[in-house]
Design a protein around this nucleic acid. Sequence first.
RNA 1: CGGGAAGUAGCUUAGCUUGGUAAAGCGCUACGUUCGGGACGUAGAGACCGCAAGUUCAAAUCUUGUCUUCCCGACCA
Length: 561
Amino acid sequence: MKLSNSFFYTIRDDIKDEDSKSGNLLVRSGMVKKEASGVYMFMPMGLRVKRKIENIIRDEMDKAGANEVLMPALIPSDIFHKSHRYDSFGPDMFKLKDRNDREFCLGPTHEELFVMAAKEKIKSYRDMPFNIYQIQDKFRDEARPRFGLIRTREFTMKDAYSFDTDSNTGEVSYQKMVTAYKNAFYRMEIDYRIVKADTGVMGGDLSEEFQAVTDIGEDILVMCDSCSFGSNIEVAPVQAEEFEKEDKKEMELVETPGAKTIEDIVGLLKADISKTVKTLVYSVDGEIIFALVKGDRELNETKLRKLLKGNDVVLATEEDLKKVTDASFGSLGPVGVDVKIVIDNEVANMSNFVCGANKTGYHYINVNLSDFQVYRQGDIVNVREGDTCPHCGGRIYFKKGIEIGNTFKLGTKYSEALDLNYLDEENNLKPVYMGCYGIGVARCMAAIAEQKADEHGLVWSKEIAPFSVGITVINMNDEKQSSVALKLYENLNKEGIDVLLDDRDERAGVKFKDMDLIGIPYRITVGKKSSDGILEFKSRDGKIDTEVSSDKIIDEIKKYI
RNA sequence: CGGGAAGUAGCUUAGCUUGGUAAAGCGCUACGUUCGGGACGUAGAGACCGCAAGUUCAAAUCUUGUCUUCCCGACCA
């Protein structure tokens, strides 16, 4: 591509309302443009990057034996009613009606349609396994789109679905996809971790996330310093701390005026923080419960939801609280109150602890489990850095991540809901075992930008750069220079190398800045010495900066791409 | 959905407290000088100040409403 007479522009100033590094640079470099919150246009450069990512994924999927298909984005809503997901998606789904008032939605995901497609083929156990995938746009009316391309409302996703007779062969299909993902992300040069994750609205048996490590990640990744353990904090198990068992002391009411937080209590009563218990009030599907965690722990709502098998788990409001006690939030506890009490495993190890007395301004000291009735006990808190690894006893540390891929063992959830069955060898009708596998295409693009960009702009790895090589002509009005550059451009094209020729009548500085901003990995500069057959060869990452004679330049470039 | 901030030229912003229909830089056009890391000078073009009501002789500025966008949180494959 020649830049003169091309649809190409860059923006010099930082973009207002694009605070993330990747979002800002992708817009500044003219790769994308925002049209509405979480809705982006892809311009020529940006589209090329996106396509290259898609093609890497497509290549790896094909190698893994998956077949590409394409589903509609416009989907009749009734199929989501059948799978009972219409309500679980709720307001995240874009809904519309046709002229006959039939309800449609813009697909937020495609499990249902893939099941319908699979029904065409699957009759018997002989018809499996197979895997089908598509690269297509999904629509989700996110509560808060953010960070440029990282969380958008329309986004391109590769989604694959495996169909197997049972969990044994399903496991094989699953591992094939995991391998394909590793290959794809390796080629994209993304720094990522695989972590265990919550299955969420997808349901199923197991979920693993591929998380790109960046500072602006939306997820907290829990890693171990001495083994391969990795988990999203949502589901990372906590190794409950053990405490010395003390003899039970007599519970005692003490005045704690004005104390609202655990820190206040610790200061006021000179209590050790490990002797304090925090009471959190949750509304679980409308019912008020008290959740008890050690004073310095944070409650994990995902774990609480699972323990109680609830759907809607939210912090209670002051109004909710009034239904069960007159006490205010800072003075709550498990003693003498008529609500279900859920305790964290760690609380079960504690004795003679401090907690609220359900009387504003008062706490009890020396409370023990025998002083109240426990409804449920479980792991309901977040891991902290420095905690003990539940697998090997090593130390836990955190990273922030952007979810770029996700693999699920769905099991039979969808096949049962949508009647996807097969006949086995003994002529029994059985539900199909499914897996599903997603990669966020533009999210990969943003994650790479986030990880690799420097103070000069974007830096793309060679396989996903919009062009592999850029030619910068210092002076287009110099006939020698322009003819050398044009010849080189043609020869590189003949070699099948993606090459961008900056033949604009701009000053050299502007051209250098633009080539850096858009992140072309290799640059050839055609300048004064080109009349002596000398060209400059430089890599965007700064590792190469050398002069090469013009008859050797193509061989030199081929070494790298 | 809760908390915070912001909408003024294509872009980034000033002006708003203390009302008098608008300013700068970048970009753009023309000419000249420049020409290897976002050049300089001169002259221009370009804005019903998000939208709607209200107060007022007069509103970018004050009041109310509304829409949009971003940030933190909630939520989220």
